[in-house]
């Protein structure tokens, strides 16, 4: 600021900060903001953990007719819900709020690269999801007799389901962030479909109790396939018998989740608006 009139030549020489540096800085800022906003922490971060404690207190022992404990069953479902909450719900609401409260407009007036904004969001989503998963697993093991798989390929399955699922859901969330008209309506517009999706995707209610048309709807979205993938990790081969088709259908899960990554990317690139509706 001092000596501004004499500065132009020096300015031209200084290099612009990289996408990596600004993206990392955005990630730190997003995360700091996330954990300071009570709404976000309660709805997105704490929700699956609270549900795990509730479920753990209600359902004990094994699923009738099997040796699979309820803890294995709902932990798999809640991890799916946590991953989608951290990505789809978090971004769907968060970006709608950013658009409404002037964040995007302010950023558009700075030299911040667009990619850095999304890098920051992605880092925040990954951190929230991983923390959620670690806490769910730790609580499960310590309090509810959850048994972690000991075969390496199960964890490999966990990894690809997690990566494909979180990417697809995040892109779906970015696209959905354009739907709410304002920050105030964002949590309703984004959360309601998400809660419904959790009920029909096998997070809370076993598929065997759902009518077929609901299963058909759920099969379009990533959550059902994520949960199915995570069940294959935590329930093992014995659990496959609980699935509708008697199989975890991992190949189909990979296909649907992969399609969401590709389709979600196209949806985002074609529909994303930096401006709010009121900006005209």
């Amino acid at each position: 600021m001092s000596g501004a009139p004499a500065a132009p030549p020096a300015r031209a020489a200084a290099p612009l900060p990289s996408i990596a540096a600004t993206g990392w800085s955005r990630g730190l800022l997003e995360t700091k903001t996330f954990f300071r906003e009570r709404d976000a922490v309660v709805f997105t971060f704490a929700f699956p953990i609270v549900l795990q404690v509730v479920f753990g207190s209600i359902f004990r022992g094994a699923v009738p007719g099997t040796e699979i404990s309820f803890a294995q069953l709902y932990t798999a479902g809640l991890i799916g819900a946590a991953v989608m909450g951290a990505s789809f719900q978090n971004l769907g609401i968060g970006i709608a709020v950013d658009r409404d409260d002037g964040t995007l407009r302010r950023l558009a007036g700075t030299p911040l690269p667009h990619g850095a904004y999304f890098t920051g969001k992605v880092l925040n989503v990954l951190l929230v999801a991983l923390l959620d998963v670690v806490i769910l697993l730790a609580l499960g093991v310590l309090m509810y007799d959850l048994k972690l798989p000991d075969e390496l390929f199960r964890w490999a399955t966990f990894a690809w389901v997690f990566v494909l699922g979180i990417t697809g859901s995040a892109l779906l969330g970015i696209a959905a962030s354009g739907l709410p008209r304002s920050a105030k309506s964002a949590s309703a517009v984004i959360s309601l479909p998400f809660v419904v999706l959790q009920f029909i995707s096998g997070v809370f209610v076993p598929f065997t109790q759902l009518p077929e048309w609901l299963i058909t709807i759920a099969s379009v979205f990533p959550l059902k396939w994520m949960c199915q993938g995570f069940r294959s990790v935590f329930l093992g081969d014995a659990g496959a018998a609980l699935e509708l088709t008697g199989s975890y259908e991992l190949d189909r899960a990979a296909l649907v989740l992969g399609a969401w990554v590709a389709g979600g990317l196209i949806l985002c690139l074609t529909t994303f608006r930096w401006k709010g509706r009121r900006d005209g």
Partner: peptide, 29 residues
């Protein structure tokens, strides 16, 4: 070019210093 938009409600949960330091990181000089 600096742009000061009309009143906004962003960065509400950040402190003044955090916000200024963060935005300083966007610029070459």
């Amino acid at each position: 070019v600096g742009v000061v938009p009309q009143t906004a409600g962003d960065a509400a949960e950040l402190t003044v210093r955090e916000t200024l330091r963060h935005f300083a990181g966007y610029y070459p000089n």
